[in-house]
Each structure stands twice: as C-alpha cells, then as structure tokens.
C-alpha cells in the first residue's frame, strides 16, 4: 500500500477524534472546513439515533479503515458512511423487518445455506461492537476506536478471517455485515446519508441517477463526458 501524506492522515485523525469525543455536538462541519486535498463538502451535523456514544466511535473508526481516504479519492468517514449506518439501523432493514426471522435458528447450518443467526442487523451491530471492544480491551487495554490505524486494520483482518473468537457473535458474520453496509453507504445515493457530494461516484466515474444514455448507446468506446447527478437533482 502506498503511504498517505502525513497532513491527510493528521486531518482525518482529527476529524475522527472530534466525532468520537462529542458525537452530538456536530463538529463535522467545522472539521471539514479544515480543507485539505481530499476534503469532502462540509457535512451537516449528525447526531446518531441508534448507536450509543461508544458504538458511534466504533463505526466511525471502522469505516475509516474499511474505505480510507487517500490521494485516490474520498474515504467512507468523510462521505458520511457512519451516518448512513446509523440511519439504516433505525430503518425497517436495521430492525430485521426485511428478513424472515422466525425460529428455530440453526447457526450451525452450512454457510452455503445462508444467514441463520437470530440477530437483526441492529442487534448484530450492538452485540458485535461490544464483543470487539471487549476483545480490544483485553488485548490492548482500550476500545477499538482508540487504537492506531494499523492496529485497527489488524483487528479488522482478524475479524474478516474469523481469527478472533468473540463472545456470543461469529466474528466473520459481524465483519461481513459491517463491510457490506459500509460499501452500500459509500456507493448509495446521497439521500441516505453516505456518499456525500457524490464523492464515490465522481471517483469511479458513475453518472448516478442520469439513467438516460440514448445518445451515448451508439457511441461505443467513447468516454462519457458528464458527471453524476443525484436522485434529488444535485450535480457534481
């Protein structure tokens, strides 16, 4: 991995710690005003509705490493993915209302038979975050959010590979849920709270909600010239 400029790292760390320290005060706008090469448009203040202070610190620290900011483009934290996650937790999806949740549950079933845990998404986050923070407390003497970036990466890698045994939660299942939702928030329309300023769409070249290529369908191989629009009509 290429190293990132120190200034960028310092800015991001400030951003994250500000939010960790005082989630309800909405320092995001002030922090973003610091600017820097990859700063997103100023995000509005956001106070989490579902996550507790400790959980909010965790999700910010986690999404910041799952999709970090660097010279290639914006990271998940500055695009508001933590806000996206919190809003999803408070939605029908987070409450498990889109899933069949009748028992009996057979978590021991073959993985190829699909998700068989009794946790709804919001319950999986609650149990998973607590279990990871407990594990980090035992291993490092502090919660996940207070670990250095490379330590957080190492914990995430171990969760991904199932190398950590968590209390009451399968590590791989929790990690898979977190990564899936993080990418959703990064790439979904900005109206869900993530992908602020259509930052991820600009980075990859997706025109968003344009959804009309009548003129370009007969010009194969020619780069598409227009930037993205959002469902609510914003342009970038």
């Amino acid at each position: 991995m290429p190293s990132e400029p120190p200034a960028s790292r310092a800015r991001r760390e400030f951003l994250r710690r500000s939010l960790v320290a005082a989630p309800a005060l909405g320092l995001f706008g002030g922090a973003a005003a610091l600017g820097g090469a990859h700063a997103a448009a100023p995000a509005t203040a956001y106070a989490p509705r579902y996550f507790t202070t400790a959980e909010w610190a965790f999700v910010q620290a986690a999404v910041d490493r799952l999709i970090p900011a660097d010279a290639e483009g914006p990271g998940a934290l500055e695009l508001g993915v933590a806000e996206f996650l919190d809003r999803q937790m408070d939605d029908a999806y987070g409450r498990g209302e889109l899933w069949y949740m009748q028992g009996p549950f057979h978590p021991e079933a073959a993985p190829t038979l699909g998700y068989q845990l009794r946790f709804t998404p919001r319950e999986l986050y609650r149990a998973g975050i607590k279990a990871v923070d407990d594990w980090c407390g035992r291993q490092h003497g502090k919660p996940f959010a207070e670990l250095a970036p490379d330590q957080r990466d190492e914990v995430l890698r171990q969760l991904e590979g199932g190398a950590i045994e968590l209390d009451g939660v399968p590590a791989k299942a929790f990690f898979a849920q977190l990564l899936t939702n993080t990418k959703e928030g990064y790439f979904a329309d900005p109206m869900y709270g993530g992908n602020k300023g259509m930052g991820s769409w600009k980075m990859i070249g997706f025109p968003g909600a344009r959804a009309d290529f009548m003129d370009w369908s007969e010009q194969p191989g020619k780069p598409y010239p227009l930037g993205p629009v959002s469902i609510k009509g914003a342009r970038a």
Binding site: M1, P2, E4, R65, L66, I67, P68, D70, E72, G73, G75, D153, L156, E160, L179, T182, K183, E184, F187, A188, S200, W201, M203, I204, G205, F206, P223
Partner: peptide
C-alpha cells in the same frame, strides 16, 4: 456500483488497495 462493480482477482475486499482497484476497474 454496489452490485455490479468488479475488482481483479487477488484484490483485498477492503482498504486502500480495494478502493484503488475499484476506481481503476469500474469504467
């Protein structure tokens, strides 16, 4: 992009390397 973006084999599922591959592969 959530469902239809592919990255080359051997790319990690997350982190800076994933993001770079996503950016380079998408178009």
């Amino acid at each position: 992009p959530i469902q239809q973006l592919a990255v080359p084999p051997g790319t990690p599922a997350w982190g800076a390397a994933w993001k770079r591959a996503a950016k380079q592969s998408y178009l």
